[in-house]
Design a protein around this nucleic acid. Structure first.
Length: 587
RNA sequence: GCCGAAGUAACUCAGUGGUAGAGUAGCUCUUUCGUAAAGAGCAAGUCGUGGGUUCAAGUCCCACCUUCGGCUCCA
C-alpha cells in the first residue's frame, strides 16, 4: 500500500468513526461524545453513555449506521469561535477540555458535518462518504479511561474497521480468523506445552513438551553466555525488605511485588506485623546481583564482569492485564548484569548488539528497537545521562539497525533500548531490553579498585536478550503456528510401526536415534497407520518414521514430513545424519 | 484494578424455569492394518464457587473466583 492509499484508508476509517458517533447519538441522544480516531487496523470512538450498553447492541448500531450513511453525500466544515464551540458542547466536559487544549495551542477550532451530524474535528475525511466507505463492521466493545489515565472516568469504546471494498473487509476478517488459530494459548493446550489453572492465576504449569521447548531455548542461551563471556549465578528468591529499601524497589515497585510478612503462614494479615521479618519475592534480579558484586573486593581487571541469572521472578501484575504467556506473574528471563567502568560502555554495548543479532537470527523474527532517553523523574547527573545517551546512540547508528527514539522513555536510572515484537494479532510486546544503570551501583555503594589503587564506582548494564522465556515462547509459538523447527520441536521424530511384528525393529531404531541425541518417541499403540499419521501431523511432529515389512527387509525407515511430504526410504545412519545436520543449523 | 464477554464431561461445544446432551479423547473387547480418523461397548458432570428467588434453577437475582478482548495509535 502506498502513502496515498494509506491516507485514503485512514480517511475512510475516520469518516466511519463519525458515522458511528452519529448513529449512537440517534439511538441514545444523551450520550456524550469524546474522541474517535482512525487506528492501524480500523477506528474507535469513545462514548460516555448515560446507560451502559452491551456487545449485543453492536448489530443494532451497525444497522443504524447503514441507514444514516444514505444521507452522507459529503463532508463540509466551518471554523467556529471558542464561545460557539463551547456553547455547542455545553453539557460535554470532554469536548470542553479538548476545546481548551486547541485554544491553548492557538489552533483554529473546526467543525465537520455530514448528513445531519456535526462534530468537533481536525479533518481528514473521505470526500464522499456514501461512496467511499465501501464496507465496515463493528468489532468489539471495551472500556477505556478518558485520556488513558486510571484516575479519569471509564468510557465505553467501540472498535470497528472499514475498507474501500467489501472484498478487503472479508479478507481482513479472514486474516483475524487465521490469527486465532495461531494463538499460543490454544496451541499450548493442543500441543500439550503448558496449561493455566485457577490454583495459580497468571502462572504457567509446564507440561513435558513445553518444558522441553523451554529447556532447549535455555540451552541455547547458555551456549551464548559461554560464547560472549558470561558466568551464570543463582541468588535467593525471597529477600528481606531491607534489600528492596536499598535498591529503591520498596518505594517504587512494592505494589507490583508479592510481599510476605509472617502472615504468609497464618493468613491473618497482609500488612507487616511488628516484630516479624518482612520478605518480598524478587520481581527482578538486580538487587541480588548488586549484592553478589560486593562479596569481595573487585579490581578493574575483573571488568567487564558479566553475571547471568535465570531465576524465577514474580510480579503481581494487575489481574486484568494477564494474558497467557505474554503477561504472566511468574517467569524467568535470560537476564544478566554487566559491571563496567565508563570507558567500556561503547564496546560492551556493541557486544550486546551483536549478541541480539546472533540470538534472533535463528528464528527469522522481525523486531524493532526502541531507544528511550532521560525521563523527567530521572535520578542522577544530567551530564552522565548525556554521555551515556550519546554513546548508545552512536553505537546504534553505527550498527545500521533500524531504531526509533522516544524521548523521556528511559528507565529512571538510565537510558535503555528495548526489543519490540508483535504477536499473531499484531499486538506489540517487549521482549529483550538493555538498560544502562547509572544509579543502582551508587545505592549499593559498589566499588572497584582502579589502576591507581583508588576506589571507583562501576556502571551496570541490565540486560535480557530474549526477555522472559515465557513471553518469547509465546511469540515463537505464534510465529511458527506450532510448527517448531526441528531443533526446538519437543518430539523430533515419531516412529510408527505398522503392525505388532514390526515393533521389535522399531525399538532398535528408537534406541539408535536416542543414542544420537534425537528426541524420538515410539507410537506402538494398536491403531491404524492412517490414524497415527493423522495424530502426529496434528501434533506437528517434524518427521514420522514408518516401519513395515519392506523397511525391515531393507534395514531402513520411510520418512514422512508433517507437511505430508514423502521423503522416501532411508537407512538409519543417513537419517540420523540428516536430522543431526538440521538440528545443528537450527532448521 | 476498571469496562465488556465467557465459564456445562479431560477437550470443543449444544442445552432460555420441569428427568444434564453430542463429537473427540479415555477405558474394555474385536481388528494387525502401508502414508490425515477401523468397529462395538463402557465409564465419565456438586453445570466455576457461595448465597438468594421459586413447588422446581445449568437457565432468574447478588457476591466472589478464573479466563479472554480492551484500558492515549488521541479533535
Amino acid at each position: 500500500m502506498n502513502n496515498e492509499e494509506k491516507k485514503h484508508l485512514e480517511e475512510i476509517r475516520h469518516s466511519t468513526a463519525h458515522l458511528l458517533a452519529a448513529a449512537v447519538l440517534r439511538m441514545w441522544p444523551d450520550t456524550k461524545l469524546t474522541i474517535g480516531p482512525a487506528i492501524e487496523s480500523g477506528f474507535y470512538y469513545d462514548f460516555d453513555f448515560a446507560n451502559p450498553i452491551s456487545e449485543s447492541d453492536l448489530p443494532k448500531i451497525e444497522k443504524k449506521m447503514r441507514e444514516t450513511l444514505k444521507d452522507w453525500e459529503k463532508f463540509s466544515h466551518r471554523e467556529v469561535t471558542e464561545k460557539e464551540a463551547k456553547e455547542f458542547y455545553k453539557n460535554n466536559p470532554y469536548k470542553q477540555e479538548l476545546i481548551d487544549e486547541i485554544v491553548a495551542k492557538g489552533e483554529p477550532i473546526t467543525f465537520y458535518k455530514s448528513g445531519r451530524f456535526e462534530d468537533l474535528c481536525r479533518g481528514g475525511h473521505a470526500e464522499n462518504p456514501r461512496d467511499d466507505i465501501g464496507a465496515f463492521t463493528l468489532l468489539s466493545l471495551a472500556g477505556a479511561y478518558w485520556r488513558g489515565t486510571e484516575k479519569n472516568k471509564m468510557l465505553t469504546r467501540i472498535y470497528g474497521t472499514a475498507f474501500a471494498t467489501q472484498k478487503e473487509l472479508d479478507e481482513y476478517l479472514q486474516l483475524l480468523e487465521e490469527a486465532k488459530k495461531r494463538d499460543h494459548k490454544k496451541l499450548g493446550r493442543e500441543l500439550e506445552l503448558f496449561i493455566f489453572d485457577e490454583t495459580a492465576p497468571g502462572m504457567a504449569y509446564w507440561l513435558p513438551n513445553g518444558l522441553t521447548l523451554y529447556n532447549t531455548l535455555y540451552d541455547f542461551t547458555r551456549r551464548m553466555y559461554k560464547k560472549f563471556g558470561y558466568k551464570e549465578v543463582a541468588t535467593p528468591m525471597l529477600n528481606k525488605k531491607e534489600l528492596y529499601e536499598t535498591s529503591g524497589h520498596w518505594e517504587h515497585y512494592r505494589s507490583d511485588m508479592f510481599v510476605s510478612p509472617m502472615s504468609f503462614l497464618t493468613g491473618e494479615s497482609t500488612e507487616p506485623l511488628l516484630g516479624h521479618e518482612v520478605f518480598g519475592v524478587k520481581p527482578m534480579n538486580c538487587p541480588n546481583a548488586m549484592t553478589l558484586f560486593k562479596f569481595k573486593t573487585r579490581s578493574y581487571h575483573d571488568l567487564p564482569l558479566r553475571l547471568a541469572e535465570t531465576s524465577s521472578l514474580h510480579r503481581f501484575e494487575l489481574s486484568g492485564t494477564l494474558n497467557g504467556l505474554f503477561r504472566i506473574r511468574q517467569f524467568r528471563q535470560d537476564d544478566a548484569h554487566i559491571f563496567i567502568y565508563p570507558e567500556l560502555i561503547q564496546s560492551e554495548f556493541e557486544n550486546l548488539i551483536m549478541m541480539i543479532e546472533e540470538m534472533y537470527e535463528p528464528f527469522g523474527l522481525t523486531y524493532t528497537l526502541r531507544f528511550g532517553t532521560r525521563p523527567e523523574k530521572a535520578l542522577g547527573e544530567k551530564k552522565d545521562w548525556d554521555y551515556a545517551e550519546k554513546v548508545l546512540r552512536e553505537v546504534l547508528e553505527k550498527s545500521g539497525k533500524e531504531f526509533f527514539e522516544v524521548a523521556g522513555e528511559g528507565a529512571f536510572y538510565g537510558p535503555k533500548v528495548d526489543i519490540l515484537m508483535r504477536d499473531s494479532l499484531g499486538r506489540e510486546w517487549q521482549t529483550g531490553t538493555v538498560q544502562l544503570d547509572l544509579q543502582q551501583p551508587k545505592r549499593f555503594h559498589l566499588a572497584y579498585i582502579d589502576r591507581e589503587g583508588k576506589e571507583q564506582m562501576p556502571f551496570v548494564f541490565h540486560r535480557a536478550i530474549l526477555g522472559s522465556f515465557e513471553r518469547f515462547l509465546g511469540i515463537l509459538t505464534e510465529h511458527y503456528a506450532g510448527k517448531f523447527p526441528v531443533w526446538l520441536s519437543p518430539v523430533q521424530v515419531l516412529i510408527l510401526p505398522i503392525a505388532d511384528r514390526h515393533t521389535a525393529y522399531a525399538k532398535e531404531v528408537v534406541d539408535a536415534m536416542e543414542k544420537a541425541g534425537i528426541r524420538i518417541v515410539l507410537d506402538d499403540r494398536q491403531s491404524t497407520l492412517q490414524a497415527k499419521i493423522r495424530e502426529a501431523t496434528l501434533q506437528k511432529v517434524p518427521f514420522m518414521g514408518i516401519i513395515g515389512d519392506k523397511e525391515i527387509a531393507d534395514q531402513a525407515i520411510s520418512i514422512r514430513s508433517r507437511d505430508g511430504e514423502d521423503l522416501g526410504s532411508m537407512n538409519l545412519s543417513r537419517f540420523i545424519q540428516k536430522i543431526t545436520e538440521d538440528i545443528d543449523k537450527k532448521a
